[in-house]
Amino acid sequence: MADENWKPKIIAIICNWCSYAGADLAGGARIQYPPDIRAVRVMCTGRVDPLFIMKAFQDGADGVLVSGCHFGDCHYLEGNYKAAKRMFLLKSVLKNIGLEDKRLRMTFVSASEGAKWGHVMDDVIKTVSELGPSPLKEFAR
């Protein structure tokens, strides 16, 4: 179904303290990964309203990544736990409305894990690429 030139559109909502810093570290270390993800920075993944993710899918996103601190490491104590709970629930909602729940991913990358950020990028892009374009794409706009 996807044409040869199709590239996934993936949005990453990432926390300032861990994952954003980890992504910066990956840059400093010149770790190379595919350029299909665009990042939006928030202070904490706790800020991520599930409606943001629904909005992204409604807008035609092929995948959404939410990435925060490791459990126990949250700059705001427990925002990442709350985000993880919401993402868990949201995944079941996505399944129920017929969207592959693999299109939504939550990861935990610390400020010192530049290499891990690179792996996460590779993996998320690979997963979403295999799934192909989002079925919601035609409803976008």
């Binding site: 949005i11 909502i13 939006v40 928030v42 202070m43 904490c44 706790g46 800020r47 991520v48 309203d49 599930p50 943001f52 909005k55 992204a56 807008d59 996103a61 700059h75 705001y76 427990e78 925002g79 709350k82 985000a83 919401r86």
Partner: peptide, 29 residues
């Protein structure tokens, strides 16, 4: 300023300064 309340409020009644819902949605859009 973590915004965990703002990410949760079912009525969208919490305005997280500098990371407001309209701002983030505008970025996504």
């Amino acid at each position: 300023g973590c915004g965990t309340c703002g990410g949760f409020c079912p009525g969208g009644a919490i305005w997280m300064q500098h990371f407001t819902t309209p701002q983030i949605v505008a970025q996504i859009d």
